[in-house]
């Protein structure tokens, strides 16, 4: 049973001052997020990532389609007792302290006063706000507010954690801490859904990603499969290569670039990789490195979004049918 399942999820907003007309911001989204996975929602600004998350949390309502959470209809408010949510650019009450807010959040989940105190202290320590816990939130920096946002999303020890742009406003150290936190959540078998437009974050963390652009799903799949299928070439670096060998490689159509006593080869075909290695062994040439040049998520993203051309049609169809 998927933790989150959306079927034909569509959202229109009314735009215009006098004559309202619908503007589609999410179009027939079919997704299934499985238990225990880290799922990334990727896309540029305005792609529909936050809209999707707000629909899941019932902060906005779908124009069409259905959403189920933990196998039940999403309109049941009690389901949110198992969800933690960090909104994009979170904001808190100016005059409350971080500790007060976390206790307040705990009370909304029905935690007993003692449990609230314990969770608040533990989370403040975990996100590095323990020393400023009694200062009003209005004095916090953007990074500190983001940390408090993360803490309040975890106050109920949720089974499903939804984070909207969790790295936003954080310095490199903070981003690393959030990355570690997401990995900790994964290790604890929690389901994590997060949106981002920072692709290296998704590359590091996600088991599967959905790529959105202008409200439409452009790609969906396991990240390792997307990246593995995108091996473009293999880069081989050799040392002390004799001139005769270079000629033989050139005859075989393998491009070589000499830098000092090293030669860098860009080999497109797997069969050719074998041929190069065979020559290297036979000629007792030192193999310095051999690196598969993979399509990065960034390449995939750009190719999908910028050119609007499907990269792996067959793969997508397969994944989309899984989503349905």
């Amino acid at each position: 049973m998927p933790v989150i399942e959306t079927i034909n999820l569509t959202k229109d907003y009314a735009v215009g001052f006098w004559r309202k007309r619908p503007r589609r911001v999410l179009d027939d989204l079919n997704l299934a997020v499985e238990s225990g996975e880290v799922f990334g929602l990727l896309g540029p600004n305005g792609a529909g990532k936050s809209t999707t998350l707000k629909l899941i949390l019932r902060l906005i309502f779908p124009t069409r389609g259905t959403i189920s959470i933990f196998g039940a209809d999403w309109s049941d408010a009690s389901l949110r007792a198992r969800i933690g949510f960090l909104p994009e650019n979170p904001s808190f009450y100016d005059n409350l302290t971080a500790e007060e807010f976390l206790k307040y959040a705990g009370s909304l989940f029905g935690l007993a006063p003692g449990e609230r105190r314990r969770r608040a202290a533990q989370l403040l320590e975990q996100v590095g706000l323990a020393e400023v816990a009694d200062i009003p939130v209005r004095r916090y920096s953007k990074g500190m507010v983001q940390r408090l946002g993360i803490a309040q999303a975890l106050v109920n020890d949720p089974d499903l954690v939804i984070l909207d742009e969790p790295m936003s406003g954080l310095d490199p150290l903070g981003r690393r801490e959030v990355r570690d936190l997401i990995l900790e959540l994964k290790a604890a078998r929690k389901t994590v859904v997060f949106s981002t437009h920072i692709l290296p974050d998704a590359e590091t963390l996600c088991d599967r990603v959905a790529i959105l652009h202008r409200g439409r799903l452009q790609g969906l799949g396991e990240l390792s499969r997307i990246l593995a299928m995108g091996i473009a070439s293999t880069e081989i670096v050799l040392e002390n290569v004799a001139g005769g060998v270079l000629n033989a490689l050139a005859t075989a159509g393998i491009a070589a670039v000499r830098t000092g006593d090293r030669v860098r080869l860009s080999v497109q075909d797997e069969a050719e990789v074998g041929k190069v290695l065979e020559i290297a062994v036979r000629e007792k040439i030192k193999l310095v490195s051999m690196t598969p040049v993979r399509m990065t998520l960034e390449d995939y993203f750009l190719e999908k979004v910028e050119k609007g051309q499907p990269v792996r049609e067959r793969f997508d169809r397969q994944e989309l049918s899984r989503g349905n």
Partner: peptide, 14 residues
């Protein structure tokens, strides 16, 4: 306006 409401309504609050 300040989006503080997201922190409340995303919890099991009717």
């Amino acid at each position: 306006e300040r989006r503080t409401i997201f922190n409340v309504l995303s919890k099991p609050v009717r």
